Amino acid sequence: MPDSIIQSHAAPKPVGAYPHARRVGNLLFLSGVGPRHPETNAIPGNVYDAEGRLTDYDIALQCHQVFANVRAVLESSGASFADLVDVTVFLTDMARDFKTYNQLYAQYFQDAQPCRTTIGITALPTPIAIELKCIAALPETR
């Protein structure tokens, strides 16, 4: 199967010049997926002060939304969680958020069981606390 670029109308628009996903042969590479809401672009659980500075966030709400966004990109590509083989997760506050994220991840991915790496980082390009980078393997016939 030739290369194909996937843009999903069910996921938030990318914040840069990149596709939601790219299929090469039977591999599907998802660009980094964050928790922005696809219709409003709002980040669930973010709390801002009067000057617009981020003061707090809810990692559980962001996890639910990022997992929904990953699912949307996969489905737009003809794939599902079951096709995932590798997931890299970026957290901006490992000490605060890992336990909640890990519990929610286990609920969403208990049947899929992709390999996973979780990395603590200092920031992401937008005021989000989590981002996923995924690779799926698809049968050639899809």
Rank of each mutant, 00 (worst) to 15 (best):
Y108E: 04
T100V: 15
Q113N: 13
I59W: 03
D83F: 03
N102E: 14
V66S: 09
G45P: 04
S80F: 08
D86E: 14
V73E: 00
A72W: 10
A79V: 02
A79I: 05
Y57C: 05
Y105K: 05
Q107T: 09
N102W: 12
T40I: 10
L91G: 07
Y108M: 00
P114Y: 10
L74H: 06
A82S: 15
R71S: 12
H64G: 00
F81C: 00
V66G: 01
Q107L: 14
A106W: 01
N46G: 00
I119C: 12
L91Q: 02
T40W: 05
D58G: 03
D56F: 05
N46V: 15
Y108N: 02
R96E: 12
T55I: 15
F90R: 13
T118N: 06
T88F: 02
L54V: 15
C63M: 06
L84G: 09
I43P: 00
K99A: 15
A72V: 10
L84C: 06
H64F: 12
Y105T: 00
M94E: 11
N41G: 02
S77K: 08
N102K: 12
A106I: 00
P38I: 08
L61F: 03
V87D: 03
N69P: 09
R71A: 11
A42R: 14
G52Q: 03
N69E: 08
D49M: 04
A95P: 02
F90T: 02
Q65W: 10
I59A: 01
G78F: 05
A50C: 01
A106F: 00
K99E: 15
Y57I: 03
V73C: 05
Q107S: 12
Y101N: 04
A95Q: 14
V85M: 11
D49H: 10
A82H: 10
T118L: 12
R116P: 00
S77A: 15
L54P: 02
P38G: 06
T88M: 13
V89Q: 03
A42W: 04
N69Y: 10
Y57N: 05
G78R: 02
S77F: 08
V47L: 05
T92R: 06
A68M: 10
Y48A: 01
F67M: 14
A112C: 09
Q103T: 14
D111Y: 08
L104H: 06
A42I: 08
A42C: 07
Y108R: 08
Q107F: 08
A50V: 10
L91S: 05
D93M: 09
P114M: 09
Y108T: 02
T55Q: 11
L61G: 11
T100H: 03
F81W: 12
A68D: 15
P44H: 05
Y57S: 11
D111M: 07
Y105V: 00
C115Q: 12
N102D: 15
F98K: 11
E51M: 08
A79Y: 04
N102C: 06
Q65E: 13
N69H: 07
F67W: 05
F81V: 02
D58S: 12
E39D: 14
Q62V: 11
G52A: 01
R53H: 14
I119V: 15
D83I: 02
R116L: 11
S77N: 05
E39Y: 03
Q110G: 03
T118F: 07
